[in-house]
């Protein structure tokens, strides 16, 4: 059972906790298919989306998730805030907390900043992406989508291709998949494979073929052009040719392998349109499942308060 105030990453979350979140998400998915997509579970709770980095999909997904649980959701974006006036991060958090906030959903450009915030507030904190560290709810929605399509998780072969170093999605997935007994293979340009900080036992492949061979799931990562100070590969065209997915490469995988992408897609770079939109692509299902998974995380964390106080 989930026993924590915050979800800052999957590095310290147990297999049982992950499975409980996925189980709960399944119950919430049903709510999202109703005509009236709302339940009163978090009525009277206030959730603040604290985003220090631009985001539309993740922020909207968290906002919808909170609202479907009947919480009041407030969006706070850094550009319009006092952080630009010189206030420290913790002061900003403590000021908002003083207004009776129960939960923060935080995205920040520095790795570790979300954990730092969590340690300095009584409110629950959910990491919505911190630097290149973790993006736990994205990984959870990936796992949920994989489980939905494959029935189980253990023993599956998953390839994650692309910019591993800069990808917090890859890092969260690496921690989680390792715990769940998934055979994870990583591949990308040598300049984009981290030299440290990967869970023990993560396999870094030497070729696209090695990574894709007999895979159940192919996850293509986005080339994060905005995160690169220096050029890590010569041109987009070359990247696409060497590290992009195409029809021939897809044939190396299992016949029923699914294609995933955390979005937003650079069409024609890591993934051509004909594959992004084909029937093996589950990219929009990932987005759909994101709402249910975030509802589950919000619900399970908010319920914690009660059990903790009693103990």
């Amino acid at each position: 059972m989930l026993n924590r105030k915050d979800l800052t990453g999957l590095v310290d979350v147990t297999k049982e906790e992950i499975l409980e979140i996925l189980d709960t998400a399944e119950k919430f998915k049903e709510i999202n298919s109703r005509e009236i997509k709302k339940v009163p579970a978090l009525k009277g709770k206030t959730i603040v989306n604290l985003f220090f980095e631009p985001s539309t999909r993740t922020r909207t997904s968290f906002e919808i998730a909170g609202k479907r649980l009947s919480a009041d959701v407030i969006n706070f974006t850094a550009s319009a805030s006092s952080t630009t006036k010189g206030e420290t991060l913790i002061d900003t958090v403590k000021n908002i907390e003083s207004m009776g906030v129960d939960m923060f959903v935080v995205r920040h450009y520095y790795s570790g900043s979300v954990r730092f915030i969590a340690q300095n507030t009584k409110a629950h904190v959910i990491n919505a992406g911190d630097g290149t560290n973790e993006h736990p709810t994205q990984s959870l929605l990936d796992l949920y989508t994989i489980k939905e399509h494959k029935g189980n998780l253990e023993g599956l072969k998953v390839a994650i291709i692309g910019d591993i170093t800069h990808s917090r999605v890859a890092r969260s997935n690496a921690w989680a998949m390792k715990k769940l007994g998934i055979d994870l293979r990583l591949y990308g340009p040598k300049t984009m494979i981290p030299r440290d900080y990967l869970p023990l036992g993560c396999k870094v492949c030497n070729s696209m073929e090695e990574a894709l061979e007999d895979c159940d799931v192919v996850m293509m990562l986005r080339i994060q052009l905005e995160r690169q100070g220096i050029a890590l590969f010569p041109s987009l065209k070359e990247y696409s040719k060497l590290f992009g997915l195409n029809k021939n490469r897809l044939e190396l995988t299992k016949k029923d392998a699914i294609i995933m992408h955390p979005g937003p897609i650079n069409r024609g770079v890591e993934l051509p349109s004909y594959l992004a939109d084909c029937d093996r692509s589950v990219i929009l299902t990932q987005v759909e499942n994101g709402v249910a998974v975030r509802m589950a995380v919000m619900y399970l964390l908010a319920m914690q308060q009660n059990t903790k106080l009693g103990e």
Binding site: M1, T24, V39, M303, N306, T307
Partner: peptide
């Protein structure tokens, strides 16, 4: 999810 004591019960309810 509709219980009026959802935020007060100490025993965690399984969905």
């Amino acid at each position: 999810l509709y219980r009026d004591d959802l935020t007060e019960i100490s025993e965690f309810p399984k969905l």
